[in-house]
Every structure is written in C-alpha cells, then in structure tokens.
C-alpha cells in the first residue's frame, strides 16, 4: 500500500478558550480529491492552515508528503500549492508580476505564461490586481497555487462567494486537475461541490469528524429513508401499501403515493407483487435517495448555510 500523502492523527488546535479542532484524523492518498465538508466555523480552515504550516498545532500528529510542516517548512512549501479562503495581493500588483514573483520563490516551477493562458487570464496580464473581478481573482489564486507544480493542492473554499457561473468554471478547473491525478484537499460548505468533485468526504462539525467515506457510502450509511413515489392505475385500498415489506410509512399526495422505506429494493419487489395480485397497474415510479444534504442535516442537526 502506498504511503498516504496527507496524514492527520488526532489534530487539536485551540485559540485561547476555543477549541477549533478537537481530534481530527484522516488520511489522503496520492491522486485523491478529499473534501472537508462542514458549516462555517466547523474547523475546516484551521485544519487546512495547520497542514499548510501557517498555524502551529496544539496536539496530534500530521505529515504532509512525509514532512512535518513545523520542522521542515521550506521543503514542505516547495511541495504544496494552496489557494486561501480569500487570497489577497497588493492592489497595485500586475497579474504577470504576481505570478512571476511567486514563480521565483520555488525550486521547481511551471511556465507562468502558460498557466495564465490556461486560466484565461492572458489578456488580463497587465491589469492591476484590484481591477480583476472576483472570478478572475480566484482563477489567479488557482494559477498561483499551481506555479510550483505541487504534489498536494489545498483549496480552502475555492468557490465561496462566487456566482454560479464562475463556480462552475472553477469546478471545471478542479475536475481537470483531478483528471491529472493531483492530490487535492478541498474544504467547502457547498454540498454539491463535495458531491461532484470529491472522491472521499469527511463531514466535520464542532471540530470533529462525524462521518467519513465516499459521497455514495455516506448516503447509503445514512439512516435517512429513501422515498418511492408511485402513481397507480387504480387507487390502492386503504392500508395495503403500509403492510409491504420494509415500508415504514405511506402518504398520499394528489393521487401519488409516497412510500418511505428502509431499503428500496425489497420494497419495490413487494410493491410490484402486491399490484399484480391486486390487478392494479403502475403508471409511474420515482425513487428519491437521500442526498448528501439529508445526511449532513441528520448528522449535524442544522442546515449547512447558516
């Protein structure tokens, strides 16, 4: 088994009285996109900043590319690329100057002009930083994070505060990086982002990992019920649907029966058998599985975007 690129064991980070991170553990393999999903203030950014070497941990063990961020900061910084939650550069710095300057810091670099071209910033290269739009700033931040061709990429809420169009553009870029087998640690409080981009997700709240797995696993593990919505040719007689296998509850809404069930497969089989015996017919059938959002709310007991 290859050694994980990122290893976090029982990480603790305190700010005065507040314990922001309380024993977080996870590991990320090479080429994996790992997501930290949680509401604001859950401890995602603190975790990432400790891994980047920007903050000193108060407990636990971490290793990034086999290095300790506190003991060998410069070696580490040559291996990682990062886009902070809000990257900020001097207002009067030109785009080309910014990326050229940062390229000069590293041992191994990629051609800054190529990066600008790829991120669609070529015609903006002579603009000042404060003349860029939010999306352009974020693209520049991503380009700058890649300037040293890093082994691990940290993206701290790469799409927070951007409009949907720009967000999808950023998703495209991250998917492209994923295709190149880059190891990425992504934090987000957008469910769709975690679901679309991440191979594995850790749901984090109050400084603790409360669930970890692929988005699919998390949804399956969830106790939330799947729903089957059926329309029938003739109305079902009262209470018969309730007695079907694994069906917990049935509600009728405008001629559509909504079956809440523990497991969908046996419920569907039982439903079809019942209808056949009853000489009834299925007009339509829809299955709604719990979304990651349902899982999240079930686990944390509060909505994500508050």
């Amino acid at each position: 088994m290859p050694k994980p690129v990122l290893q976090v064991e029982n990480l603790v980070k305190r700010y005065d009285e507040v314990e922001a991170v309380r024993g977080v553990s996870f590991s990320v393999e090479e080429g994996e996109v790992f997501g930290l999903l949680g509401p604001n203030g859950a401890g995602k950014t603190s975790t990432v900043e400790v891994l980047e070497g920007l903050r000193i941990p108060d407990g636990g063990r971490i290793s990034v590319c086999g290095l300790d961020p506190q003991k060998s900061p410069n070696e580490l910084k040559n291996e990682i690329g990062a886009a902070l939650q809000a990257t900020s550069l001097p207002d009067k710095l030109r785009v080309s100057e910014a990326i050229g300057l940062f390229a000069g810091f590293y041992r191994r670099t990629r051609n800054p002009n190529e990066l600008l071209k790829r991120f669609g910033l070529e015609e903006k290269r002579h603009n000042f930083y404060n003349q860029l739009s939010g999306g352009q700033k974020q693209r520049l931040a991503l380009a700058m994070a890649l300037v040293n061709d890093p082994r691990v990429l940290f993206l701290d809420e790469p799409t927070a505060g951007l409009d949907p169009q720009v967000r999808h553009e950023i998703y495209g870029i991250i998917e492209e990086l994923k295709g190149q087998r880059k190891t990425i640690l992504l934090t987000t409080h957008y469910i769709e982002e975690a679901e679309r981009l991440c191979d594995r997700v850790a749901i984090i709240d109050h400084g603790k990992v409360i669930a970890l797995g692929t988005p699919r696993e998390l949804k399956q593990r969830s106790g939330s019920n799947a729903r089957i919505e059926v329309r029938l040719a003739r109305p079902a007689s009262n209470g018969t649907l309730n007695n079907l296998e694994s069906v917990k509850d049935v509600r009728e809404v405008d001629g559509t029966y909504v079956l809440h069930c523990h497991r969908t497969a046996p419920a569907i089989v039982a439903l079809v058998k019942h209808l056949e015996a009853d000489n009834n017919e299925l007009v339509s059938l829809e299955i709604a599985t719990p979304s990651l959002e349902d899982v999240f709310i079930e686990l944390t007991g509060r909505r994500l975007r508050d």
């Binding site: 910084k77 900020s88 550069l89 810091f105 590293y106 041992r107």
Partner: peptide, 14 residues
Amino acid sequence: EQGILRRFRLAPIS
C-alpha cells in the same frame, strides 16, 4: 491585515 503576508507565507520564503 488584508492577508497579503499570509499568501507570501505559503511560499518557501521565510
């Protein structure tokens, strides 16, 4: 205050 120094700290520059 604007977090500009923070960005520099991510680079291998002490």
